[in-house]
Design a protein around this nucleic acid. Sequence first.
DNA 1: TCACCTCATCGTAGATTTGCGATAATCGAT
DNA 2: ATCGATTATCGCAAATCTACGATGAGGTGA
Lengths: 105, 105
Amino acid sequence: MPLAKIDTFDNSDKQLADIAKALSHPARINILRILNERNSCITGEIVDLIPLSQSTVSQHLKELKRVNLIKGEIEGPRTCYCLNEDVVEKTKSVFTKLFSTFKCC
Amino acid sequence: MPLAKIDTFDNSDKQLADIAKALSHPARINILRILNERNSCITGEIVDLIPLSQSTVSQHLKELKRVNLIKGEIEGPRTCYCLNEDVVEKTKSVFTKLFSTFKCC
DNA sequence: TCACCTCATCGTAGATTTGCGATAATCGAT
DNA sequence: ATCGATTATCGCAAATCTACGATGAGGTGA
């Protein structure tokens, strides 16, 4: 299999871009804020707070889970989501590091 | 015209998501780093440093210019790009503010 | 003027994202 | 066992993104 061009980019830049992608939709930012305020939420509560359908919200949750910014725990018929604090902090430091490399920052 | 659902999201969340989108490709992160190191570059120099075609690089530059992270100045037949330091700093503070709202950060 | 250089834009193809309704799967309660 | 509640997944459509080659627009130098 030939080397895809995207693979030639620096690994940490790929990681950074990937997490930026997870943050690139207002609904997902909104979900992070909600989970921060309430500590934890079941899917239904989030759906009630976001102007999108249940299935769409579920997909956004999946994307946030993909990059581990949130964790979901199954509790009977519900799923309880909360921030993954370790990864949130790590993400903060990744962005901080990026901006600290810029001379102007 | 009906109100699009995306318009119901908080404005600052939309802005944040939009700038995250601009950062969501490793080539664009790479370009920002290059411009930081060299202070300024013409398009051709960036093309030589990035494993993508000239037209593709030009599109990535356009996306970065869309969110004002970079500025391009036409110098005869060339275009000289550099970081827009004000916006880079502003972006840094927007991300810093986001993460500072999280209890764990 | 004319050939050349530089670079943005156009047109296009394929992949990915976003959104929805419908469906399926799982659990709790009756 | 079955019904209802909850939520993930499926299937689909529309939109957007990514990438490229080709083209065009504009400037420079011969």
